[in-house]
Each structure stands twice: as structure tokens, then as C-alpha cells.
Design a protein around this nucleic acid. Structure first.
Length: 721
DNA sequence: ATATAGAATCTTTTT
DNA sequence: GATTCTATAT
């Protein structure tokens, strides 16, 4: 078999990794060093050169996007579909296993998935049931506790309060929450992983089947694996599976949600026959950007050590813009983007990155004001929208009457006269009789423990759900959805909602119908279990919340947090709000480990840039409605001065302040900030700043050879370069 | 049962 | 500043 198409596009280091010998492989891949490429080519190599069957290969990623991209690139390289190959997220694959082996996993056949919002509601309910004060025992906190334990592979029975009353309460909530999930046939995200792990532990013969099948296991973003994911991988690999893990300890930014970078170091201990490869040649960023990023990250103590290099030239210096306030900052960034586009560039060459979402607003305002198209990543996703979740809850309750989470959500949505009092009685009946809400409802109706008005309301809900269940049986998926929207009167309900919001909600409901139309049930194609189409659709909705944003090919400026920028690249990158307390964030400043994670986050942001990187900070910032004076981020001070170009603008709030320079000087001497100039004696330089006006106007110029100087415009006789 | 006004509270995010 | 929950009035 000719494998030149697999190996030729690779550099030496990449090729060595792709052709790694039998045994385990760890690839330490720096930012922009071709990480995905190595994974994709490795799989192609296994299939084409080593004759491995696609049946025997499993590739795991963290996001659906990454999984989709990987499969696409593999098929492109192979020139054919690779159906039997398993490519998916940890959660997606765990879900697939549990669907195929629901009996062995002790799950109901039609179990459904709780997303984090559903989970939080469930936890809140449990807290109430325990008679605890919600203010003292915040549902969010308990949810966080439960997920953290699950991510560590721990059940309540593994935990001990050791006299700590807080822990004792948390464990109690965890226990009751588990009971709730069990009797409702519900599984949260962390549970998918934990359950899949336990399934293999408890059924060794089943594990053996998968161990025999998957001789090759590939993991993307290995630095992001949490305890349970890594344990699961090790279990699957057993003694015979070969693991190919790709990661970068410098890009570990998810420690706060349980990711353990240590897995990279442990890997070589756990698997002694591991070959380690380093990919350090960067194909993305210019020299200055890379040097700056390298210098910054060198301040971290806990590193495996790695230095990125490039064959490209130094490129433009990294710009640091010192803004007066956040409005000035936004104007500077937007103006830079505008001049990029005026010079023939595209809007989507540009990314505005920030530490926290609250920072996006001011950029949006300025972008709107200037009529520049933009897209903000990471808002509410399609399947997370209220109206969509309402609609799905009807379908879920129809297919599983035990699903209390869904029942609670829609029992009075749209409003049908079932208030808190009535609901409390239903809950009480359900709880005392050990029944689901749905059963509790029937109990209340039979024993008439409420007044007639409430009973009527409850009866109408029961009738509705029963009618819905019988009416949608046998219909095609999209018709089921359509029928549900009609019978539940959800569409009618949202029609009444006025304004832009109501219109958008209706559109989303229509969109749900078309999502059902195009949905193909590929959930279990090789297993014995044929999953119900509706159930598959509902799982899909929970596991893949969807984008629901502007189409990707449109030309928009990209706004996102530094976290969501990981894995992406842009010609021009603006990292904004480089101030102490904001970035590094004040909640991470005191702990060295967390501060290092902030620095890695900065490193990730910087290495997104191909040609131009601009870091900005404001002296004064209004955040959460409060105005504060700020100090520049310590990260700025850690950058090497030879890669940096400082841009300052004294005391002026808007960039229009730059214009007086142009107005007050004669036409041929007119200049703007950032203008390249030539001086008779000092040579070439760049205008950084200006001061005053008229005859006394002075400019600050950064000369390539002699550094920064203040010059009086009238005498300096600068020429524009 | 709902509508509205005041108060509290705000990292980062995927599944 | 903006959302989201809580208390109060209708």
C-alpha cells in the first residue's frame, strides 16, 4: 500500500510520532504544532500501513466539534468513509456503551440524560425534600460537589464526613440525588462516565470484549482528562491495548473542572513502554508572538518544558495598548479591525478575546455603533433554550412517565392553574408513597385530597399527557414534535409572548421541528439494541446542545473568552482586559497553582495569533457597574521587551483624539498613531503617542535603532514612510 | 396565580 | 449593568 500521502505532508517529528512503534505513545504537542494532524495521520497510518481494521480503533475527544472535525479529516485523507471507526467524545462513547448494555449497567432501557440545568433543578428539589434551607445549602454548590466526586469516581458510599457537618450534608444530598435519578430513570453527564467505568469493572467479560476489539486507543487533549476518564481509558487498554495520547501541559486550562495535567507525567509510569515525542515546530505564529509566549510560559514552575520555534520571520512586534478606560480599549480594537478590513482583510481574521463574558458588552456596543458584523461565542445554545427545553420535556415525559424532572418543568407550563400549593400536595403524595410525580398526581386525583378547582387542573394535565402519548404513537419524528407543540399549546403560549423575544422563541420551536426532520438515528448501528427514534433524538439533544449561532462561513469578527478560543487560530488576535484582578482573575491570584493556570490561559490566548497579537489594558474600568482603577497584568511585565511595541494614548477617551494630530499638522506631515515615519538622524520608527496641538504638538516615536523619543513636530521634519 | 418591583449576585465550560 | 431570584401587592 502506498502511504506517501500519509507521511509526505509531515515534518520529521510528526512523522516519527505517526509511525511510532508498537507500545504506547505520548505526544507532547505545542500550540500550533500540528496536533490534530498527527492524530489524523496516525489513524490513517494504522489502517493503511499496519493493516489495522477500523473496527479496532477508538479515538476520543472532548467536544463534539473536535470529534466531527477529526472524522472528517480522516475520511478526507483516506478518501473513503470510515464508518466502523469509533470517534467521539468521552460522554458520547460512554452513552453508546450504556445504551448497548443498559441491562448490565442496571439502567432502564429508556433512560434519559440530564443536562446541567436539569441537574441543578433536580438537586434543588432534593434539597427541598430534605427540608434544608436553600440559601444555606445552595443547589449550585451541591451540584458542584456531586459532580466533582463523580469525576473522581466516588459514590456516596466511598465518602466520609469525618465529623464535618458541611460534608455530612453534602453527602446526604448526593445520596438522595442518586436515589432521585434512579427512580426517574435519569443520568447526568458525570454519571455517564462513572457508570460506563463501573460497567466494565463489574462485568469483566464485557470489558474483555471491548479490550479485544480496541487494540488502538487515541486521545486528544490528554491534559484535559479527569480522573474517571483516565481510569476508564486505562481499564480499556488493559494489557494489550495501545494508547496514543496527544496533549500539551502548557495548555491545561480546565483544572478547575477536574482535569488533571498530572496524567501526562503518570502516563509514563503507568505504561513503561511509552515512546515520547515532542512537537515543537510551530506553523501558526510569527517569531515575535512565539518568543513572547515562550517567555511568558517559562515563568511557570510545573512544566515538562518545551520551546516552540518557527521557520517564519519575526513578523510584527506584539503590541501592547495602554487604554484609558474600557471604552477607549474597545475603540482602539475596533479601529484596528476596521483598518485591517480597509486594507483588504476580512472581519473573521480578527478575534477579540477576554477573560470573562461580562467584557464582551462594550465591544458589542462599539461594533454595532460602527456597523461591523460580529459573532459572540458561547451564549445559550439551541437545545438549552427555555422553549426548546419545555418542548423536549413534554416528549420526555410522554416517553417516560417516571421522569420527574420533566414533569416538574411542564406541569404548569403553559400555565394551567397548577400553583405552588397544588404542586406541593402532589410532591408530598409522591414522596410519602415512594412514587413518581406522575403517579403521585394520579394518587391525588383518586383520593381527592385537594379542592375541586385544583383537581380539575390536574385532571386536564393528565388528559393532555395521555392524549399526547396516544396521538404521537406511530408518527414520524417530526410529526411527533409538531403534534406535541400543538396539543401542549406551547406554540400558542409563546405566540402570546410579545416582542422580539416571542418571535425568536416561535422560530426556535419551528427550528426544533426541522431538527427532528433532518435527524438521523445513528445511535446504535452495530449493537443488538435498536433505539427508539424519539429516545435517540432526546439523547442527541442533551449530548449535543448545538450551536444556534450565525453560520460559520459568514464574515464576522469573532468575540469569545480565552477558554473557548482554545484550538482556534486567527490572523489578528486582541487579548483585552490585561489587568490584575481581571486577568489573572482575582479569585485565582492567591493560589500558585491557579495562578499558573491563568498564565497558561494567557499563553493559549497569545498563541492563537498568526500575524498580529495585541494585548490591551485599561487604567480605569467599569465592571459590574462599578468603576475601579486598575494595575496592568503581571503577565505584561513578564514579556520580553524586544518583541514588544508599546502604544499609549494619554488621557484621551476616544480614538478621535488621534485626529487632531492630523488636522493640526500640514497635510504632508499629517500622521496617525502607528504611522511609520523616517527621521533624518534617527532613522525609521513608529508613532506611538502625541501630546498637545498646533505649533507645540509633540509626538512620541519608537525608532528601530535608538528607541523611543519625544519630538516636536514642527522641528522634527518627520517623513511618512 | 400572576405581575411587578427591589435585592442579591456575579470566573472560566463541555458534556 | 444585567440577569435572576424573592417578597409583596393585586
Amino acid at each position: 500500500m502506498d502511504v506517501s500521502h500519509i507521511l509526505d505532508p509531515l515534518n520529521d517529528a510528526q512523522r516519527e510520532a505517526v509511525c511510532a512503534p508498537a507500545g504506547h505513545t505520548l505526544v507532547l504537542a505545542g500550540a500550533g504544532s500540528g496536533k490534530t494532524r498527527v492524530l489524523v495521520h496516525r489513524i490513517a497510518w494504522l489502517l493503511e500501513a499496519e493493516g489495522v481494521s477500523p473496527w479496532g480503533v477508538l479515538a476520543v475527544t472532548f467536544t463534539n466539534k473536535a470529534a466531527g472535525e477529526m472524522r472528517g479529516r480522516i475520511e478526507q485523507l483516506l478518501g473513503r468513509p470510515a464508518g466502523a471507526l469509533w470517534v467521539g467524545t468521552f460522554h458520547g462513547i460512554a452513552h453508546r456503551l450504556l445504551r448497548a448494555h443498559w441491562k448490565e449497567a442496571e439502567l432502564p432501557k429508556d433512560f434519559q440524560i440530564l443536562d446541567s440545568e436539569d441537574q441543578q433543578r433536580a438537586v434543588r428539589r432534593v434539597i427541598r425534600e430534605l427540608g434544608l434551607d436553600e440559601n444555606r445549602w445552595a443547589p449550585r454548590e451541591a451540584q458542584w460537589y456531586i459532580n466533582a466526586r463523580k469525576d473522581e469516581g466516588k459514590r456516596p458510599s466511598h465518602l466520609q464526613a469525618a465529623g464535618d457537618p458541611w460534608l455530612k450534608q453534602m453527602i446526604a444530598i448526593y445520596e438522595h440525588y442518586e436515589a432521585f435519578c434512579r427512580r426517574s430513570g435519569l443520568v447526568d453527564f458525570a454519571e455517564l462516565l462513572l457508570r460506563a467505568h463501573e460497567l466494565w469493572l463489574q462485568k469483566p467479560d464485557l470489558l474483555a470484549v471491548y479490550q479485544r476489539r480496541f487494540g488502538h486507543i487515541l486521545i486528544d487533549e490528554f491534559q484535559d482528562t479527569n480522573t474517571i476518564q483516565y481510569a476508564w481509558i486505562r481499564l480499556l487498554a488493559g494489557d494489550s491495548g495501545r494508547i496514543f495520547a496527544v496533549g500539551d501541559d502548557d495548555q491545561s486550562i480546565y483544572g478547575w473542572r477536574g482535569a488533571r495535567v498530572e496524567h501526562i507525567q503518570q502516563f509514563q509510569r503507568h505504561f513503561p513502554d511509552t515512546s515520547v515525542f515532542r512537537l515543537e515546530q510551530n506553523y501558526r505564529s510569527s517569531g515575535n508572538i512565539l518568543t513572547a509566549a515562550n517567555t511568558l510560559i517559562a515563568n511557570n514552575a510545573e512544566r515538562l518544558g518545551k520551546n516552540l520555534w518557527t521557520e517564519d520571520g519575526a513578523g510584527a512586534p506584539v503590541r501592547i495598548y495602554n487604554a484609558f478606560n474600557e471604552i477607549d480599549e474597545a475603540h482602539y480594537v475596533v479601529d484596528s479591525i476596521r483598518s485591517h478590513v480597509d486594507g483588504g482583510g476580512r472581519y473573521d481574521d480578527n478575534a477579540i478575546l477576554y477573560r470573562s463574558n461580562a467584557q464582551s458588552r462594550i465591544f458589542e456596543e462599539v461594533l454595532i455603533q460602527q456597523g461591523i458584523p460580529y459573532r459572540v461565542y458561547g451564549g445559550l445554545r439551541f437545545f438549552e433554550r427555555q422553549e426548546i427545553k419545555d418542548a423536549l420535556a413534554y416528549l420526555r415525559l410522554a416517553s417516560n412517565p417516571l421522569d420527574d424532572a420533566s414533569c416538574e418543568r411542564i406541569i404548569n407550563q403553559p400555565p394551567r392553574g397548577i400553583g405552588q400549593r397544588t404542586l406541593a400536595e402532589v410532591r408530598e403524595q409522591a414522596r410519602s408513597g415512594g412514587m413518581s410525580l406522575w403517579q403521585g398526581l394520579h394518587h391525588v386525583l383518586e383520593h381527592r385530597t385537594l379542592n375541586a378547582r385544583a383537581l380539575n387542573a390536574l385532571q386536564s394535565f393528565v388528559d393532555l399527557m395521555e392524549r399526547l402519548r396516544s396521538d404521537i404513537a406511530g408518527l414520524a419524528l417530526a410529526e411527533q414534535v409538531e403534534q406535541m407543540l400543538h396539543l401542549s399549546r406551547l406554540r400558542e403560549h409563546y405566540q402570546k409572548e410579545k416582542g422580539e423575544k416571542g418571535r425568536a422563541r416561535l422560530e426556535n420551536l419551528d427550528e426544533l421541528v426541522s431538527a427532528a426532520q433532518v435527524f438521523v438515528n445513528d445511535e446504535v448501528e452495530d449493537g443488538e439494541v435498536q433505539m427508539d427514534e424519539l429516545a435517540a433524538f432526546l439523547s442527541h439533544a442533551a449530548l449535543e446542545a448545538g450551536e444556534g449561532q450565525a453560520a460559520e462561513w459568514d464574515d464576522y469578527v469573532q468575540l469569545m473568552t480565552l477558554h473557548s478560543a482554545k484550538g482556534l487560530e486567527f490572523k489578528q488576535v486582541f487579548v483585552c482586559g490585561m489587568e490584575e484582578g481581571l486577568f489573572p482573575h482575582k479569585l485565582s491570584i492567591d493560589e500558585p497553582g491557579r495562578l499558573e493556570e491563568e498564565r497558561r490561559l494567557c499563553y493559549v490566548g497569545m498563541t492563537r495569533a498568526r500575524e498580529q497579537l495585541t494585548l490591551s489594558h485599561a487604567e480605569k474600568r467599569r465592571l459590574y457597574g462599578e468603576e475601579t482603577w486598575t494595575r496592568p497584568s503581571r503577565f505584561l511585565a513578564e514579556l520580553p521587551s524586544e518583541c514588544i511595541e508599546q502604544v499609549r494614548m494619554n488621557g484621551s477617551v476616544t480614538p478621535s483624539a488621534a485626529e487632531p494630530v492630523a488636522e493640526q499638522v500640514d497635510d504632508d506631515a499629517a500622521m496617525q498613531l502607528g504611522q511609520r515615519v523616517i527621521h533624518d538622524k534617527f532613522g525609521a520608527g513608529v508613532v506611538l503617542n502625541y501630546e498637545g496641538g498646533g505649533r507645540h504638538a509633540r509626538v512620541q516615536v519608537n525608532f528601530e535603532n535608538v528607541g523611543t523619543k519625544w519630538l516636536v513636530l514642527e522641528y522634527a521634519r518627520l517623513q511618512r514612510a
